[in-house]
Design a protein around this nucleic acid. Sequence first.
DNA 1: GTGCCCCTTTGAATCGTTTCAGAAATACGA
DNA 2: TCGTATTTCTGAAACGATTCAAAGGGGCAC
Lengths: 333, 333
Amino acid sequence: MRAASVKDVADRAGVSVGTVSNVLNNPDRVATATRERVLAAISELGFVRNDAARQLRAGQSRTIGLVLLDAANPFYAALAAGAEDEAAKHNSTVLLASSQGDPRREERYVDLFEEQRVQGLLISPVGDPSARLGQLVSRGVPTVLVDRDAEAESYGSASVDDVHGGRLAVEHLVADGRRRIAFLASDPGLRQVADRFAGARQAAESAGAELEFVRTSGMTILGGRAAAADLLRRETAPDAIFCANDLLATGVLQALIMDGRYRVPGDVALVGYDDIEFASSAIVPLTTVRRPAEEMGRTAVRMLLGKVEVEHTVFKPELVVRASSRRTGDAAS
Amino acid sequence: MRAASVKDVADRAGVSVGTVSNVLNNPDRVATATRERVLAAISELGFVRNDAARQLRAGQSRTIGLVLLDAANPFYAALAAGAEDEAAKHNSTVLLASSQGDPRREERYVDLFEEQRVQGLLISPVGDPSARLGQLVSRGVPTVLVDRDAEAESYGSASVDDVHGGRLAVEHLVADGRRRIAFLASDPGLRQVADRFAGARQAAESAGAELEFVRTSGMTILGGRAAAADLLRRETAPDAIFCANDLLATGVLQALIMDGRYRVPGDVALVGYDDIEFASSAIVPLTTVRRPAEEMGRTAVRMLLGKVEVEHTVFKPELVVRASSRRTGDAAS
DNA sequence: GTGCCCCTTTGAATCGTTTCAGAAATACGA
DNA sequence: TCGTATTTCTGAAACGATTCAAAGGGGCAC
């Protein structure tokens, strides 16, 4: 049994397909009696508009594609929530896809969304905005990078000044007397990572502190835990660890506590990045660099829908000091 | 400038539209020389298949809709990751939508997915599986409830035995000598909540312990924090708090620590539910009831795609004891 | 009764892809 | 050289909603 179509509804209600379509899209152009007859037929037949056909005719959908690096990272989850909320205000819908940091998966989703002729694409790209994204734009798909600055590129962007963020974190650490700082992140090639590291380096250099890049296997709790375990096997541990996001910092904290030899923040200070909701409730509440996730999502959608003129929005990050970096603070095991 | 269509490609390559379609879908039916000519035309014109047209013709998409209560809850995020992964194996794609616990938003997404003629729908419904979902099924949309038992209903389900989970948690608490237990959750009408509470009650009654249902404003960290703050204003605080999920427990922990009068687990034991990745790294590592989130996502997709015969899969939860409920454990402020 | 206007309704054309019956071209054996 | 298989290609039909020019019909003024 095939799904009911406008034709079926039209037959049942004794009207033409055009009228059915009008009931659906321009109800006030249809006489009340007719409209009711059509609506009755619709509910009797369980008619559901076929979006494919509608889109085919319309040429565009009311859907915004959002491709995230990692939907499981609360930072991105919050960003997505902001985007959904803003889109709903403009009668659009956000469909979420998580690339899990896998470029092939990312490409699959980008392809899918382009084939679906989405209203626009929001994306936090895995690597450097690929040629693929350039194509998108040149074919007229409005594209906004989130959590990534696009500079002079052809797409819009909603990002954070990560150089500044990195600087804030390390300035705070050196002000507290820390001198051997480890910077943890997965891939120095990632733009976000590179920027945060650059800022960190500026601050470290002007204070004459050491700064070492320590590579993790991923930007996750597990990645942080593993990298920290390695780090602690060395003869001398750093006296501060700055992680490129809060998930890493959470993992580092777990490793430090399991190891048991170093107190946080007594022996090792720890600073994260993002200020996800869990940061304040970690074993040792995390000092971190806050980024306005929801607001970024909202802004990106507004830019996409052309509700806003700016091409690039850059938010200022903000240092949130908590126990994990306060020398005078209450230590933990 | 209109986007290129198969027709344009066909003209450019000097073949018919049927041949272009074959290059796209049955490449081996086309002579090599021809195929290459067509591929060249495709890339010259920047042709992108129009999914709407394709679907219209095919009648169905290769997309699975997943509607979650709250994409920001790591439990659901993990479930989604499992679902995506499994779907990818079967050459399908998962599109995520977060209802944020709002029934209207949920309905919008369900409508959208039905109009898109998705391959199937996975959903953790806000309220009771509404008539709306019944319609879906009766119209032939494969539907699987996740994180929710469907019993004799007409859809499949991948769920957890939450009565058992509730029992495990409270049995553990009373075995430790706790007698005044508060159960925190948002809405007793939610099935998951009701089941966990029922299990908790069984365990409490057979041990002669008090069990009180305390209502929170939402199943989030903030909800937990607020409810706990209220609770602590009473003359006598409970000696154990069992939260319907780990987010609530995280919030409760924050409130307890900010309040400062009670030690965890010394004065108050705390048990969560889900075992999200953050549970083990909370200020006081959380005792919790583990549910196999990823596995549930995977299983649900398999059921949806008919790769598996069972109608209902019920997973067994598992108690994970950590510091937040160990009397002998290391206390925190 | 006629003409005019306005409100409703009609139905063919259109969007871009896939499918499929059959045509065309090529290969091969006798 | 012919007949038959086999491979390759063609192009019209179909999917289902929307659009829009045109037709239908009612009301009203003269």
